[in-house]
């Protein structure tokens, strides 16, 4: 599904975020990206939904070369990637349901689709009862579940989560991970960048470790492997 071929990424300020990274991720996989801060985890995820473009190398998404994609094609790529953020990135002046519906509004979905898909997505993350609440009235874990509902509301084949539990306590993190697993079970590919050793060790999923911009380890059913 995703194929990185000798990808290097140097930021304009000279920071080498990724160096010659080659990586294949198959459809339906659950992949952890681990490594210390500044190892290039975030950059790698941003390259997939073309928030950034590689300096060198090719990235294929479902066979399509996204490093050579025209700017006007980018929105359509992003519609097949649901992104979950550490800081949730919810709109504070919209209700829970409106935040989720926003993902469909900006891609000009019909009202009927929105009315059907939003309650479904909220049901999947267990927030059906909070549809009318404002984000500020919710706990951190609940806010992140809204973020997840927004990411999956248009059924993307890929979900990217960048430190989704970074701001949450361990119990809440467990709920989020459970939901991500549920999403993955329905056939959605999940890529999660994280620092959370316990989570990675407990899940026994594929682990890709990055260090100073290089892939230093890639194991099926791996552990976090760092002593923090």
């Amino acid at each position: 599904m995703i194929n990185f071929i000798n990808v290097s990424m140097v930021y304009p300020n000279g920071t080498k975020a990724l160096i010659d990274v080659s990586l294949r991720i198959a459809k339906g996989e659950f992949v952890f990206l681990v490594g210390p801060s500044g190892a290039g985890k975030s950059t790698l995820t941003k390259l997939i939904f073309r928030e950034e473009q590689p300096t060198r190398g090719q990235i294929l998404f479902n066979g399509k070369n996204i490093s050579r994609m025209k700017p006007r094609e980018v929105p359509y790529l992003r519609r097949s990637v649901g992104v979950i953020f550490q800081d949730f990135k919810l709109l504070p002046n919209k209700t829970v349901a409106e935040n989720v519906a926003f993902a469909l509004e900006v891609i000009e979905a019909s009202r009927r689709e929105i009315e059907k898909a939003v309650p479904d997505a909220l049901e999947r993350v267990g927030l059906a009862k909070k549809a009318g609440a404002m984000p500020s009235e919710l706990s951190g874990g609940e806010q992140q579940r809204v973020g997840m509902a927004r990411a999956i509301v248009n059924n993307p084949p890929l979900v990217i989560a960048d430190e989704p539990t970074g701001n949450l306590d361990p119990d809440t993190s467990g709920e989020i991970m459970h939901l991500l697993q549920e999403i993955n079970k329905c056939g959605t590919t999940v890529i999660m960048a994280t620092h959370a050793k316990d989570i990675v060790d407990g899940m026994k999923k594929r682990v890709v470790a990055l260090e100073k911009g290089r892939v230093v380890r890639d194991e099926e059913r791996g552990g976090y492997g760092y002593e923090d």
Partner: peptide, 16 residues
Amino acid sequence: RKEIQIMKILGATDWF
């Protein structure tokens, strides 16, 4: 700007 950033990530077209 925050809203615009979110819109971009959600796949809104430039003209939208």
